[in-house]
Computed example of a mutant assay.
Amino acid sequence: MTSKVQSLKAFLGGAGRVALVEVAETKGSTPREKGAFMLVSGAAIFGTIGGGQLEYMAIDKARQLLISPLEREMAAERPEGVVSEGTARASSTAAATPPDGFAATLTPRGRDVSATLDIPLGPEIGQCCGGRVEVLIRLIDAALAQELVAAADAEEAQLPHVYIFGGGHVGRALASAVALLPVRVVIVETRAEALEGMPDAVETSLTP
Rank of each mutant, 00 (worst) to 15 (best):
G13H: 07
A151E: 14
R111N: 08
R111H: 03
L159E: 15
D100G: 12
D118Q: 05
E85C: 10
T207K: 04
L195Y: 08
E147C: 04
S114P: 01
T190I: 09
R32T: 05
I45Q: 11
L8Q: 00
A157V: 10
I125S: 11
R132K: 11
A15D: 04
A194Q: 14
V185W: 00
E55Y: 00
L144C: 03
A194Y: 13
F11C: 00
G16H: 07
K27R: 15
V183W: 01
M1V: 01
A173D: 12
M38S: 05
M57W: 01
L121E: 10
A15T: 08
A157P: 06
G130M: 11
M1R: 00
C128K: 07
G126W: 05
R17A: 15
M57D: 01
L181E: 13
G86E: 04
G47W: 00
G166M: 12
L180S: 13
T87D: 06
L106P: 02
A143N: 10
K34V: 15
A96C: 01
A75E: 02
A154S: 13
T204V: 15
V202Y: 01
G35Q: 00
A94I: 15
F46S: 04
R63C: 09
L206A: 12
R138D: 11
K61I: 13
K9Q: 12
A94L: 08
R191T: 15
P98L: 11
Y163I: 03
E124L: 14
S92K: 02
G197W: 06
L136F: 07
A88N: 05
V40H: 06
R191Q: 10
K9P: 14
G42M: 11
A201C: 02
I187R: 15
S92A: 08
P98K: 07
P182W: 01
A44R: 09
E189Q: 12
A88R: 05
P123G: 04
P160N: 10
L180R: 12
T107S: 13
A175S: 13
Q127N: 08
A152E: 08
E25H: 12
D200E: 10
P99R: 14
V83I: 08
V40F: 04
Q53P: 01
D118N: 10
Y163T: 06
S7G: 07
A15M: 05
L8K: 10
T2L: 08
A194I: 13
G13M: 06
L174S: 15
L12T: 02
V188A: 09
L54M: 05
G13W: 06
T207R: 04
P99W: 09
